[in-house]
């Protein structure tokens, strides 16, 4: 076991996969000599060489587009986009190409690439550094979308993403990069894509979150101090999401709160609620409540805290459902 935060877990996962498969390459802006602006690739270029951990020109479309070409011709590229706000240059590459390589070539070519990117607000970063676009990427058939919330899952999900035969967007919660430390195994392990994690069993209410919001939910539950028995689900994979775990829980509790830091309209909670309505409507004791950011562009740092869901808003949401 090794004590690790989320950034270090990324490094462990990358190191494990670089050592295992010579076709794995890590590429992006400042990932080599500098070890990444968050140090997620710290030391990897020294260890594996400049042909495996590659500093690229400052061009996000180029990084993702070249990764598609690399993947098509036998490599396993793990691209880093420095901040998720810079994902929209290569958005066309992901939507028009990466997601469709297998389909358009009838499986003759595949595109096993991973795009890692830190996402999320709450660290007073510059504008356009902090967006939560998970539901945008989940609205593209052919891409998988993964969001870990802790160091153990980060290493295990990253390893699974790198070995996945299809393109995976790997959203890293920037805000809690260094906030959580865990003992994680040094040996190889996986956390499967598409499986949610029940972090806490409960019977009164289902609370669903992912990424950085999981920690905020845990803080809220601590404050709630067992007033209700809450089942906390970390969705972990947004697409394809684990409907089975969500529905089983909601059928049991009959009440549900979904928390995400993306804005409300067309946020992923909407998809989850639709699925609950289709399959568990009659089990519901109250309408499902969404605790999300409002439908405004992410404000600059001064107003960031008003925008993001926090402990109080989550508690308010829980009370609203429980008192219905």
């Amino acid at each position: 076991m090794v004590v690790s935060n989320i950034v270090q877990a990324v490094t462990h996962g990358l190191r494990q996969e670089l050592a295992r498969d010579k076709n794995v390459v890590v590429l992006g802006e400042d990932v080599g000599v500098n070890g990444g602006v968050f140090r997620a690739t710290d030391g990897l270029q020294k260890e594996f060489g400049a042909d495996r951990v590659i500093d690229t020109p400052l061009a996000e479309l180029g990084i993702v587009g070249a990764s598609i070409g690399l993947a098509v011709n036998g490599m396993k590229p793990v691209a880093e986009i420095q901040f998720s706000g810079f994902m929209y240059g290569p958005f066309d590459q992901l939507l028009s190409h990466a997601a469709r390589v297998r389909m358009r070539s009838r499986g003759r070519f595949t595109c096993p690439l991973v795009v890692r990117t830190p996402y999320g607000a709450g660290i007073r970063a510059l504008e356009l550094h902090c967006e939560s676009g998970e539901s945008m990427f989940s609205n593209i058939a052919g891409l998988k979308m993964v969001v870990p919330s802790n160091p153990y899952d980060t290493k295990g999900l990253l390893a699974a993403a790198i070995r996945d035969p299809d393109p995976v967007i790997f959203y890293e919660p920037m805000r809690i990069y260094r906030a959580i430390k865990q003992d994680i195994p040094e040996k190889e392990y996986f956390v499967p894509i598409g499986k949610a994690n029940v972090l806490q069993e409960g019977k009164d209410l289902t609370l669903i979150a992912w990424g950085a919001m999981v920690k905020v939910c845990q803080d809220a539950l601590e404050k709630l101090n067992n007033k209700y028995s809450v089942q906390l689900i970390d969705l972990r994979t947004i697409n394809p999401y684990d409907a089975e775990t969500v529905l089983a829980s909601v059928k049991k509790t009959g009440r549900c709160v979904i928390v995400h830091e993306a804005i409300r309209t067309c946020g992923f909670a909407a998809e989850l609620i639709a699925s609950i309505n289709e399959k568990a409507l009659l089990n519901l004791e109250a309408p499902v409540v969404r605790v999300t950011s409002p439908d405004v562009p992410l404000p600059f740092a001064k107003l960031e805290n008003y925008f993001l869901p926090d402990v109080n808003r989550i508690l308010k949401g829980i009370e609203k459902v429980m008192s219905f």
Partner: peptide, 22 residues
């Protein structure tokens, strides 16, 4: 079908050929 978006894939595939020595 999109105009010019595939040129970077060609650069990537060529890069893979170089890295793999094919």
């Amino acid at each position: 079908i999109p105009v010019g978006t595939h040129m970077i894939h060609s650069a990537g595939a060529a890069w893979a050929a170089k890295l793999r020595g094919t």
